[in-house]
Amino acid sequence: MANETVDTAARRPRPPALALPTEGLWANRKVQVALMILVPILALTALAPLLPLQAPLETNLRAIMQPPSIDHPFGTDRMGRDVLARTLAGVKVSLLVGFSVATIALIAGMILGTLAGFFGGLIDRVVMTVVDIFLAFPSLLLAIGLVAIVGTGLIPVIAAIAMADVPRFIRLQRSQVLSLRSRPFIDAARTVRASKGWMMTRHIIPNTVAPMLVAGSIASANAILVEASLSFLGLGIMPPAPSLGNIIRDGQTYLQEAWWISTLPGVVILLIAFALHFLSDGAREELDPRARK
């Protein structure tokens, strides 16, 4: 017996399998790549006012539709505005939308999904019927429909995209809770007469957080793409306020004469979405060693 203790004490301790693996996270290659993309974009966005750029709304009719140059790395648009400055302002909007939507969806999804999954019965049936109704719409179309009703602008756009995402998070959280509920450690807690509240707060919710955060990272990327699509269709953030979607829409007319107005901001959206997906992929690998193949 003593032997067993000594022998394993020498074994290299491994991080717990499902806890948030903060050490492993920083060492993950995908997370590193994601941060290599995200950090510079975030820094540029935050420091945009300090950069030697025109203000995003400042026009300069003597320098319209200039191709990319040192002064205007992304060129200028038909009113002589600096496309890079506008893009960075648009990124700010994108990030705000992505973060807000993910936060709303996470919180609402955690609460409703946990209630539905843990208690079942009537709550579950009501919540899931509503969820099914919302999930009956393709996501962008639901957002389009909601924007058509609540109107355009930043807050309505966030609200519309979040409304489309919340049901997905409820469903995810509920399925997590259901599968955790049948795990043997819940039985083990029941054998010591733990209350439902105890099991929910000590056993179920802590084990759902990490996967929900992973899903949140993907949801923020999708929200950024949906906001851009809405703004592109003229249903999101309205000009002159810049958003990546409406900058691209502006450039659509001058695609042949000034290709940079539409294409370059698109590359930025792509990079952000890619980084957020890579981040969640890397995090999932660290959470679930079986995913690492």
Partner: peptide, 30 residues
């Protein structure tokens, strides 16, 4: 009181709890 020892100890423990908290749980609940 009846108590149980499960077949697979790994899955009958919450992976997020330390051994101390796992053993303490019955005491804390009561």
């Amino acid at each position: 009181l009846a108590q149980m020892v499960f077949q697979d100890p790994f899955s009958s423990f919450n992976p997020k709890m330390t051994i101390a908290r796992i053993i303490e749980e019955p005491l804390a609940v009561q």
